[in-house]
């Protein structure tokens, strides 16, 4: 099926001030397209979590949004450093966040499990030295 809309947002590593702008824009765009309620909230939360992870943990990357008639897809991809142990990273409470991220109220190790909970489908691929790709799909009612 053809996408009704696609948009790609570059996300800069360690740019804590801008972190969240892409997700705010994604939420706004989806709202304009008539997405609302529970789905909108779940996409917004998952998007914000994945965007924050790009800022806090990655060397930089991008977040892309595709909207289809029956689903929304978010793909986060970055240029490294990759995640050595995915099952550890997916565990609630596991975090390698630095002090700056923690001082802003993050680094509880809740992000990845929260994305998985909020998305209807969730896939994570990671290779050390290469990068991480997270794909999340959300069904539209």
């Amino acid at each position: 099926m053809n996408a009704l809309m696609t948009n790609t947002y570059p996300v800069t590593a360690a740019d804590y001030t801008s972190a969240g702008r892409a997700s705010a824009d994604i939420k706004r765009k989806l709202k304009q397209l008539g997405v609302s309620g529970d789905v909108l909230r779940r996409v917004a939360v998952a998007s914000y979590e994945v965007e924050l992870n790009l800022v806090i943990h990655s060397l930089g990357g991008e977040l892309s949004l595709s909207v289809y008639p029956d689903r929304v897809q978010l793909v986060s991809s970055d240029v490294g450093p990759g995640i050595p142990d995915l099952s550890l990273a997916m565990r609630e409470g596991w975090s390698t966040a630095n002090d700056e991220a923690r001082s802003l109220g993050f680094g509880a190790g809740m992000g990845l499990p929260n994305m998985k909970r909020n998305a209807d489908d969730f896939d994570i691929q990671s290779e050390v030295g290469k990068g991480t790709v997270i794909t999340m799909g959300f069904r539209l009612a």
Binding site: K27, R41, Y48, G105, F106
Partner: peptide, 15 residues
Amino acid sequence: GLTNPHVVRTSEMLD
């Protein structure tokens, strides 16, 4: 008690 921009962003995401 936290007053950084992410408190407002988090509020925005969660409505």
